[in-house]
Structures are given as structure tokens and as C-alpha cells.
Design a protein around this nucleic acid. Structure first.
Lengths: 169, 169
DNA sequence: CTTGGAATGTCAACAAGGCTGACATAAAGT
DNA sequence: ACTTTATGTCAGCCTTGTTGACATTCCAAG
């Protein structure tokens, strides 16, 4: 209506940009995300945790020693929200919080052995779903998948995503 | 660890199935979904609604006259949760609920003019983000994107997704 | 050395949107 | 006619997000 995405396509094949195609993409994102979180959600429920705990555990595992503030920016929640989750994880002995040596205001976060175990349980399940989808779709499709997802991110999030990627061995 | 996704790849190029690649895909999904919902979230906040309202509005628009139970299955929430959202939308005059003629137990849901207006506002914003991402990535990547997302869905959700697709003109 | 600002943590209150349980009503089956 | 099933509603609880206020601790600038 406003942008005329469903108008007559130009000379090239722009049929993949019609409103109907876009709507299907939107719905695909919705349904796929449900599948994406389904397996971890089941595991988390057994441990009386939620997605918020999963996210914290994931990114602490990804960047051991990360500060609370860094985690805050990655997760995009308030410190009060994150603090509630971290308190639970620290209290349950899954996460260790060490006062910074250089800057003692900072708390550096690490997974304990128990935290590592839960992280492994969660990520193995989530990777299994991902691996099955990747295998079924093939490498070509996976490249496209990654390309579109990156284009969909806010620029700031894209930077964080790349920073994480590049930090990996 | 458990499935050995990072072991030596087979004869073909299976490097896209390494744990590291899968982890990057997982993180890409997380960050992309944030972008995916960001624009609607902003609009919804102005109207004092949330994502739950958006989802209901989207699928009522997609299948006018759908029953509450059908919507329930698509959204994957309890009827009590959905009811709270529907009551608000009906009370605010965005959705109309008509008692079924054949089976009077059913309520058939329709968007009013006002509901249509909000739906348009939301979906225009969301499609704009999607369109930009699609255009940047190109048709080939979009095909891959769609393929991987479909493979990631639970089978039941994949069926619902296809049913919606095929119902479209 | 003092002070301002930044990083962290805590407490309290509140809202959105999940959930379960209890229940009313209409339709369908026996 | 009575029971069962399907559907929708209401009430209450929980997680996880939000703001606001405030204490603490420390670095760094004046």
C-alpha cells in the first residue's frame, strides 16, 4: 500500500520482493523461531530455568570472563532483568562472578563445571536441530540463510555478531 | 561432543556443518529475530499493545473468519492467554467476533476497519525491513533462507505454514 | 585530595504474556 | 433425557521484561 511492493516488478525478476513473498518470509521466521527454541525450552523447563537463563549461559560460554555490562549490551535487556537471572545462576552454582583485577567495579563471569554441563546439554540439542536443517537444505541454502539473517539485523547487532564471530578460534 | 559435528568432515565439503558454523547460525537467528521484531515493537508500544496482539492481528488478517481454536493452534499458546489478547482487541474495536452459524460454539474472528489499519501499519513496517534484507541478499540467498527456515520448523508447524501459503491468492 | 562520573548491585513496584484450574454453555452422541 | 466433548471465559500465579531510587566502589580529572 505505502511502498507498492506488490506493484508490477521491474525489468529484472523482482518477484521475490512481492508483498506476498515477504509475508511468507515473515511467517517462516515466526514458525522457524518456534522450532529454534523448542528443544532448549524443554530442557530448561526440567531445570526450572527460562530462556533468559539460556541466553546468559550461552554468551558467558561464548566469551568467558565477559563483564556484566558487556552481556547487557549483547542481550539488550536492563541490568535489573539480567541481574535477577545472574543471581539465580550464581546462587545455583552455574556461574562464577569474579571481581575484576584491573577494575574492581567490574564482575567477570565464568561458567562453573555445572554451568558448562548445562550449556553443553542445551547447545547440543539446539545444534542438533540446526545441523539437521542445514544438512537438509545444503551448503548453498545455508549461505543464503546467513546472508539474509545478517541483512535483517540492526547495524549495531550486526557489529556485535561479527565481533563474536571474529573472536572465535 | 555428543554428535561429533566438529570432527573431520567427510569426503564432500561438510565444513558448513561444524559446531562453530552451527553456533554462528544460532547466534544469527537470535540477533536477526531481534531486528525482525524491532519495528513492530516500536509501533505496538505507541498503541499500548504487545507482540501477542500483533500475532493475533496478523493471523486474523491472514485468515479472516478463523475460529479461536484455529488461531490457538497456529499461535501455540493456551486459550486463556489468547483470550486475554482477543478481549482487548475486541474491546478496542479492532477485532469483531461473530458466533458461528453452522456450529454456534465457534467464534469467527474478523478485523474491523480500525484493526485493518493497525495491521497495515505493522506489516508495512515489518515488510520494509524484510524487503531491504531480501533486496540486499538477492533472490538466490532468499531461496536458501526460506529453505533453511522451513527445515528448522517442527513438522506440525511446517504443515500450518504450508496451509497458510496455499490459502493465499 | 577531592570530586564527578561510570560500573555494578539491590530493592521495590509494576506490566505483559505465558501457564493451570475451575467453570459455563452449546453441540453431539448414547 | 443425560452424558460427554468442544469451546470460550474468568481468576490467579509465575517469569521476565520495564522504571525509578539509591548505595557502593572505583577511576580519573581538576
Amino acid at each position: 500500500m505505502a511502498e507498492g511492493g506488490s506493484g508490477s516488478p521491474g525489468g529484472e525478476s523482482l518477484l521475490f520482493l512481492t508483498d506476498e513473498q515477504l509475508r511468507q518470509g515473515i511467517e517462516a521466521m515466526f514458525f522457524a523461531y518456534r522450532g529454534f527454541t523448542a528443544d532448549p525450552d524443554r530442557i530448561l523447563a526440567e531445570h526450572a530455568y527460562g530462556r533468559a537463563h539460556h541466553r546468559a549461559i550461552h554468551f558467558i560460554n561464548r566469551s568467558p570472563g565477559t563483564t556484566v555490562n558487556n552481556l547487557l549490551n549483547i542481550l539488550g535487556v536492563t541490568k535489573q532483568s539480567l541481574n535477577r537471572v545472574l543471581r539465580a545462576l550464581i546462587g545455583d552454582g552455574l556461574v562464577e562472578s569474579r571481581v575484576g583485577t584491573r577494575d574492581k567495579r567490574e564482575r567477570h563471569l565464568y561458567l562453573t563445571e555445572a554451568g558448562d554441563a548445562l550449556e553443553a546439554e542445551l547447545s547440543i540439542a539446539q545444534r542438533a536441530r540446526m545441523r539437521a536443517a542445514y544438512r537438509l537444505a545444503g551448503p548453498e541454502a545455508v549461505r543464503g540463510f546467513r546472508t539474509v539473517l545478517e541483512s535483517m539485523m540492526d547495524p549495531e547487532m550486526r557489529n556485535r555478531f561479527h565481533a563474536l564471530k571474529d573472536a572465535a578460534p
